[in-house]
Each structure stands twice: as C-alpha cells, then as structure tokens.
C-alpha cells in the first residue's frame, strides 16, 4: 500500500471505544446514502437539463414549422438551438459520469463500456435507417418530420430500458418506457406535431424522473 510521509502519525481516537450503537447505526445510514449518491450514474441535474433540451430544442423546431403548409422542414436556427442544447447536456452528462466513476474499476467499468457500445449502436442504427428511408423515396415530411424526432428515441430508450431493468434501476426503466410511449404516440400527430408533442411530453417525463430520482437516491 502507498507510504506517504505521515504514515506514523498518531492514530485518532477513532477506535470505537466509546461508539454508541445508535451512532453506529446513523453512520451506516449516512455512509450508505452518501456512497449511493456518489457512485450513482443517474443525475437529477442531467435529467432537468434533458427536459430543457426537449422543451426548448424540440420546441424551437416545432415553432419554426408550426404554420407551414405545405411542410418544408425546420428553420436552420431551430436546428442550431437543438444541437447547442444537446452539446451542453452531453458535456454535463460526461462530467457527471466521470465524477461518479472516478477510481472505480472492475466489472462495473466493463459493463458500462459494453452498455455504452450497445446504446451507441442503437442510436447510429436508427439514423442510418432514416437515411435508407429517404433514399428509398419516403417523403421528406415523414422522414424528417415524423421519424427523426421519434424513432431514434424509441430505439435508444428501448435499449436503455433493458439495461436499466438488468441493473434493477427502476426509475430508469420507467423513464425508458414513458419516453417510448410519448414518442410512439406523438408520431400519429404528423410532421409538425411529432416535434411539438414529443418535446413537451418528454420534458414532463424527464421532470418527473428527476423528482423521482431525488427520492430514490435518498432512500435508506
């Protein structure tokens, strides 16, 4: 084990000679809660930021198309807003993930890498498929107005829900199922509505998830 210069410092009075059992129980509860929160990959902050992406990002896209007849697609500024918000959330998410996993090695790291690869494959696959639809002549409105805001969410959240279930992460499982339901239902509203209803619905789902996560992470 490492040998810093203060190895021989006097031991503290931390030998438990007078540790009250009630205090020991409190230490166990507090330490367990603290460790769970520090090791948790889920973050209420990231969930709230995600809700903002859906509300303002998807909302901007919907806003730029709301009076289009016929459908011509979102404005460039709206796409820029959406991507800027996605980048911000991605940066924050990566920092949260790094903080939670710093110093932790072993099976969990290998599992995370495998799960990340599965989610990335699902995400990429969904967009490659979108390209195939357009290539095969499916209308612009269906591909970019209905498929784009909904199908990648459904695919990635299905994979995410399965991963959450395997980890007994019940809030994560609920989140995945709820987003799938919102996205699938929103597709029925057409090229403009799909962006609007998916954005609003997923915003509300993520806010609920953030609130549930706060309670879940503080459970005894």
């Amino acid at each position: 084990m490492n040998e810093p210069s203060d190895t021989h410092e006097a031991e503290s009075a931390d030998e438990g000679g007078g540790l009250d059992p009630r205090e020991a129980a409190t230490i166990i509860e507090q330490t367990k809660t603290q460790a769970r929160r520090q090791f948790a990959l889920q973050s209420p902050l990231v969930a709230v930021l995600g809700a903002a992406v859906f509300l303002f990002g998807y909302g901007a896209v919907w806003w730029s198309m709301r009076d289009q007849h016929p459908y011509t697609g979102p404005a460039g500024w709206a796409i820029a807003v959406l991507y800027a918000l996605v980048i911000v959330v991605s940066v924050v998410s990566s920092r949260v993930l790094r903080r939670a996993t710093t110093g932790v090695s072993g099976r969990a790291r290998r599992q995370r890498q495998a799960q990340g690869a599965a989610l990335a494959a699902a995400y990429v696959g969904a967009y490659v498929f979108m390209g195939a639809l357009r290539y095969l002549g499916v209308s612009y409105g269906i591909v970019y107005g209905v498929y784009a805001p909904t199908a990648p969410l459904i695919v990635v959240c299905a994979a995410g829900a399965a991963i959450a279930a395997s980890r007994e992460d019940w809030p994560g499982l609920g989140l995945g199922i709820a987003v799938i339901a919102v996205a699938a239902g929103s597709a029925y509203t057409g090229p403009v509505g799909a962006w609007g209803y998916t954005g609003l619905g997923c915003c509300l789902v993520l806010l609920g998830y953030a609130a549930g996560l706060v309670v879940w992470l503080r459970r005894p």
């Binding site: 030998e15 110093g103 099976r107």
Partner: peptide, 24 residues
C-alpha cells in the same frame, strides 16, 4: 465497531460485486 472502519466498509459495500475503489 469504529467510526472510520465502519465508514470504509459501508462505502466499499456500496460498490458492485468484484469492483475496486482507488485509495484516492
């Protein structure tokens, strides 16, 4: 039954099975 060692063990128990935690 000592505050520091109890906290050490409870913290390590919060990790997944077969995971390790750096000293730092």
């Amino acid at each position: 039954h000592a505050p520091a060692r109890l906290r050490i063990l409870v913290t390590l128990a919060a990790l997944n099975y077969a995971d390790t935690l750096s000293f730092t």
